[in-house]
């Protein structure tokens, strides 16, 4: 028994980063959105739209770049619509987010059944980068040196997001708009302009998170393929204290639970129903959120429309 467990560790570690990847893309995007004071709880729906778009575009063209570009485009459009309702119309952000989740689920389900039901629907996937020798290292070899390119992409995303947020005028504007929009207004920053941009960046990254599920992690679309990852990403933002680096590490923590769950299901000699393990990441979400007291790190103007 012990040796079985030890043998599983490299695979669990590798799966951890892989399972964390969609959370990282979505959560980093949401960090940027929330730092500007907008709460988009429609990550699940956005992710589904991204997942379907990537799948359909790669299916049609057999080109991964076209798939990613189409996903980005859909993400930006979703952001534009969300920002129109929450920033311009000043509708309740929770309600618009719920609507977005319902839209994502319904629209992708409808389109998938209409267009793809009964077809042999496997697509090309993002290639795995295998670094020879290093990937044979014990324990960490597979995790660090044998992953697909979108997983490595998170190593680029997190520093870039941190740089933008903390070292550029745009990032300073985002942070100030989320804390004290009126002060930002009085020095000539366009509060709605910044919020539109932050929302669209967030939804674009969230759509990419969805694409990961259909053209990297697997090679097909399934209805509801995100299975709650959009909601977990929201918890990741809180647990990561609204910073890109925090979101990265928090995502890895949740990734562990996803990876464990997968492995434990595959253990034939455990007499526990597999559903019990499937609950793990979601139960972890609840425990993590309960363990965080208050919202003292949240941007002060989060979810509050700005009245000029």
């Amino acid at each position: 028994m012990d040796t079985v467990w030890i043998a599983m560790i490299p695979a669990i570690l590798a799966a951890t980063w892989r399972m964390a990847t969609p959370l990282i893309y979505a959560a980093v995007g949401e960090v940027i959105t929330e730092r500007a004071g907008v709460l988009n709880i429609g990550l699940e729906g956005t992710m589904l739209l991204g997942a379907f778009t990537a799948f359909a575009a790669v299916y049609a063209t057999d080109n991964l770049w076209v798939g990613l570009l189409a996903t980005l485009l859909v993400g930006v459009v979703v952001g534009l619509v969300f920002a129109f309702f929450t920033v311009t119309v000043k509708a309740n952000q929770i309600i618009v987010g719920v609507a977005l989740n319902l839209l994502g689920l319904g629209l992708t389900g409808f389109l998938f059944r209409t267009l793809f039901l009964g077809t042999k629907n496997a697509v090309r996937t993002v290639p795995v980068l295998n670094i020879p020798v290093l990937s044979d290292l014990p324990v960490v070899g597979e995790m660090l040196f044998h992953q697909n390119l979108m997983v490595y992409g998170t190593l680029l995303l997190v520093p870039v997001a941190s740089f933008v947020l903390y070292k550029t005028a745009f990032g300073l504007a985002i942070r100030s708009v989320g804390e004290h929009p009126r002060a930002s207004d009085t020095v000539g920053i366009s509060v709605s302009g910044i919020r539109y941009a932050a929302v669209m960046i967030g939804t674009a990254l969230t759509a990419i998170a969805g694409a990961f599920l259909t053209i990297a992690h697997t090679n097909q679309f399934v209805e509801g393929i995100t299975s709650g990852r959009g909601f977990i990403a929201l918890a990741v933002v809180v647990f990561g204290r609204w910073s890109p680096k925090g979101a990265f590490w928090a995502s890895l923590l949740f990734g562990v639970f996803f990876a464990l769950q997968l492995r434990l299901q595959a253990m034939p000699d455990l007499a526990i129903p597999y559903q019990a393990f499937q609950v793990l990441p979601y139960a972890a979400t609840i425990v993590v959120l309960l363990s965080l007291r208050g919202r003292s790190h949240a941007p002060s103007a989060l979810a509050i429309p700005y009245e000029a």
């Binding site: 070292k167 550029t168 005028a169 745009f170 300073l172 504007a173 002060a183 930002s184 020095v187």
Partner: peptide
């Protein structure tokens, strides 16, 4: 410096 830079500028 808030609002004194163009958005794409590095601080």
């Amino acid at each position: 410096i808030l609002g004194q830079y163009r958005y794409w500028q590095r601080l």
